[in-house]
Design a protein around this nucleic acid. Structure first.
Length: 364
DNA sequence: GACGCGTGGCA
DNA sequence: TTGCCAAGCGT
């Protein structure tokens, strides 16, 4: 490598990173993932949405099943939202699934069933933000445009010793502009694919958060943070997560045949649109809704479930449901719902802890 | 601009 | 245990 490793310049040297990373990706990057090796915008889009804030190993279990059920954008657009949520169940961030569904309908109705071919147009669609639009445009259309996800923020902030606070939008925009500046004037489609994939591959392997392997990195000699032994200082991000605890009482209404009543959650908030158990903020409130203490059959073990910003304490109360009272609890809950009797009835959008609970309680 | 939104992995 | 983070977006 004819490279001056001693005094990397802020202006010229970073441009050498592009060919280095492209070459590294082709030799050492990930290949063979189910969504790689295609330029079909539908498949790339689906993978990008699933991979938002979600690790590759988690997505692997969902992607193929989803494609099998919804092989193209028209099939997805024509499906009921519930069917989409059912296949998304357990993947989290369910607004992604709702927006995915809306996006498919927009592609069919506004674009004749073909995804638009530029990042600018892609970004107008529901659930497709700046980074996802760039990823689809780069992978599928070879557009000269940069992504900026968590991996890229780490890689580039180290490469450039960028010390702006990425908790602020202004600094994020600065880094985005720098990312765009790293691109050559006229990259080929194949180069844009390798570069985009390479940024993510590098960030998820060598350029890891805690122990980056700088010796093996294609940025050796270019990376300012590495040269200054300051990789631990980047990226800078001051935002702190504050998490609060919420206590929910879950009612397990049991029919004599063992079936359990589920109701659909509201369209906004936690687990929006998913099926769950009737939920109350206190024990007394929950019991009062369905016959009080006499109906109480069992207090189940308390469950704890952590969301991004909430620690949920879930207290399931099992109540006898007397069919003599009403045909379905829905009228009492003022919510649409259904009875589930067997594990095979759980082909529904369910929160992860509830699926786990029901799989223990219901017979196969 | 800051916060709400799931789940699982890891140090 | 606890906190942080992962192919972010919408509001």
């Amino acid at each position: 490598m004819p490279l001056a490793a001693s005094a990397p310049s802020l202006t010229a040297s970073p441009l050498l990173f592009f060919p280095r990373l492209v070459e590294w990706q082709r030799r050492h990057g990930r290949s063979g993932l189910p969504w790689q090796g295609t330029r079909d915008p539908y498949r790339v889009w689906l993978s990008e949405i699933m991979l938002q804030q979600t690790q590759v190993t988690t997505v692997l279990g969902y992607y193929s099943r989803f494609l099998e059920r919804f092989p193209d954008v028209r099939t997805l657009a024509a499906a009921p939202q519930e069917a989409v949520l059912a296949l998304w169940s357990g993947l989290g961030y369910y607004s992604r699934a709702r927006n995915l569904h809306r996006c498919a309908q927009a592609v069919v109705e506004q674009w004749g069933g073909a995804f638009p071919a530029s990042a600018e147009q892609l970004q107008t669609l529901p659930g497709i933000g700046r980074s996802t639009a760039a990823a689809i445009a780069a992978f599928c259309f070879g557009e000269r445009i940069s992504i900026l996800d968590g991996n890229v923020k780490r890689v580039l902030s180290r490469l450039l010793a960028f010390d702006g606070d990425l908790a602020t939008l202004a600094q994020e925009r600065r880094l985005w502009a720098l990312a765009q500046d790293l691109l050559p004037a006229a990259p080929s489609h194949d180069e844009m694919v390798a570069w985009t994939q390479g940024l993510m591959d590098l960030g998820s392997s060598l350029c890891s958060r805690s122990k980056p392997d700088c010796a093996a990195c294609p940025g050796t000699g270019l990376c300012l943070a590495s040269a200054q032994a300051r990789t631990g200082e980047f990226p800078v991000r001051t935002r702190k997560l504050k998490r609060s605890t919420v206590e929910w009482w879950w009612l397990l209404l049991r029919r004599p045949d063992g079936a359990v009543w589920l109701e659909r959650r509201p369209a906004e908030g936690i687990w929006a649109g998913l099926y769950s158990l009737p939920t109350y903020g206190s024990r007394a409130e929950g019991l009062a809704a369905f016959g009080g203490e006499p109906a109480l059959r069992q207090e189940h073990e308390t469950l704890r479930h952590t969301l991004t910003h909430r620690d949920l304490v879930l207290r399931p109360l099992e109540l006898d449901w007397s069919a003599a009272l009403q045909e379905a609890p829905g009228s009492a809950c003022a919510a649409p719902g259904l009875w589930v009797q067997h594990q095979s009835d759980l082909d529904l959008g369910l929160p992860a802890p509830l699926r786990s609970l029901l799989e223990r309680l219901l017979p196969a």
